[in-house]
Simulated scan of single mutants.
Amino acid sequence: MLSHLRQLLKPAVLSIILLVGAAAAGAHEMTMADLTMREVAPKEFVWAWGIPGKNTPVSQDLTPAWPEGCVGDANTVRCGERGLAGSLSVNGIGKNYSAVILRITWQGEQRSTFTLTQNQSSVRLFGSARDDRDAWQVAQTYAVLGIEHILSGIDHLLFVLSLLFLVGFRRQLLATITLFTVAHSLTLAASALGALTLRSPPVEAVIALSIVLVCAEALNQKDTLTRRWPGIVAFVFGLIHGLGFAGALKDIGLPEQHANMALLTFNLGVEAGQLLVIGLAWLVLLATRRFAWTASARRAILYGIGSVSVFWTFSRIAVIAG
C-alpha cells in the first residue's frame, strides 16, 4: 500500500517542484540587452549597455567589436573618415543573453534599430541610418526571436498547457488553438503598429489570472460553458496574451524597412514554438498513458500550474497597486 502511494506521489511532487522551479526562474521571457549609441559629434558616439524595461546592469559576457577604423573605450566610440561604417558585432550572445538590440541615434535624430542573435551576431553599417538588410535576413532574425520568446515565456506556455489539459487531444483542440492564435495575432499586430496601447502591468496580471481560471476549469468535472466552448475562452484570453507578445516585440523594435515582414515572421515564430510544445505534450501523453499514475499526475500538474499562477497574479497586482 505504501509503495503504491509513493508511486502515485512521485510524479505529483516532481511536477510541482519543476513548476515552482520554473516560476523562480522568472515568468518570462528571453533576456535581451540594449546596446544604445548616440552620435554627439560627427563620427563620435557615446554608448552604453542596458536591459529593456529594467534598471539592472548588463553582465560582462557581452563585448562589442567596433567596425574597422573605429576606436572605443568605456563609453565613447570615435571613428575615422568613413564614420560608423562596416561590420559591428557583439561577442558573447547566447550565454546569458539571447539577443542584443542595437539602437543608434544619428545626428539629425534619425534612428536605426538592429537585432543581433547568436546566429547573426553582426550587422553591416553604412555611417548613416541606411539599412541594407533584405527581407529574408529580417525574416530569419524575427522568426527565431518569436520562437525564443514563446519557449522562454513560461506564463504563455503554461496557458497553452492548461488549454491542453482542459480540452485534451480531441478534434476540438484544433479549433481552440486556432482561435487562440487568431486572437493573439490580432492584438499583437494592432499593438505593434501603434493602433492599440495598454500598460504592461495590467496585461501581465490578466495573463496570470487567465492561467488560474483555465486550470480551475480543467479540474472541474462539471459540464460548464468553458468545457462546452473552450474556443471562446481561448479567443478572449488570446487577445490579452497578444498584448504580452507585443510588449516583447516593442522591446525588440521593428526595422523601418521590412517592418511588416518582421511582424509576420515574429508571429510565425511564436506559432512554431507553440506547435512544438503541443507536439512534445502529445509525445509525453503517448509515452505515459498506460501508467496508472497519470490521472494523479494530471491533477498535481494542474494544481502546480494554478498555484504558481495565483502567486504571479497577486504579485503583479501588487506592482499595479504600488
Rank of each mutant, 00 (worst) to 15 (best):
N91F: 12
G72H: 08
A189G: 15
A259V: 03
G153M: 09
K43E: 12
G194M: 00
R38C: 04
L9F: 15
P202Q: 11
L268W: 03
V310R: 03
H184S: 10
I317A: 10
A287H: 10
Q137S: 11
I301K: 06
S15V: 03
E217C: 05
Q60E: 15
M1F: 06
V138H: 00
V233T: 13
L193V: 07
H241S: 07
A262K: 00
T115R: 01
L254Y: 00
G168K: 08
P202F: 01
A281T: 01
Q60N: 15
V46P: 03
A99S: 11
G92S: 09
V144K: 02
W293Y: 11
S112D: 14
L14G: 13
D223G: 00
H4P: 00
V100S: 05
T117S: 03
D155M: 11
E217I: 06
E39H: 10
H4T: 14
G194A: 11
Y142A: 01
R38A: 13
A300R: 06
P52W: 02
P201H: 01
C70I: 05
V203W: 00
V167P: 10
L213M: 12
C215L: 04
G94I: 13
A259Q: 10
G86W: 12
Q257C: 00
L225Q: 07
L188Y: 09
G168R: 13
L263K: 03
L302H: 05
L285A: 10
S122A: 14
R78P: 07
W49L: 07
N260V: 10
A190R: 01
V123A: 11
S89I: 05
Y97G: 05
L286I: 09
R130M: 09
L125G: 01
L157G: 02
A190Q: 05
P202H: 07
D34T: 12
F180R: 02
L18K: 04
L285P: 04
D73I: 12
P57Q: 07
A208L: 09
A292Q: 13
P202C: 07
L158R: 03
F311A: 15
A205D: 08
L2K: 15
T294D: 07
K250P: 00
V308Q: 05
V100R: 11
A234K: 08
W49V: 10
I51S: 02
D132C: 01
T226H: 04
P201T: 05
A135Q: 10
H156Y: 05
I320S: 10
L188E: 03
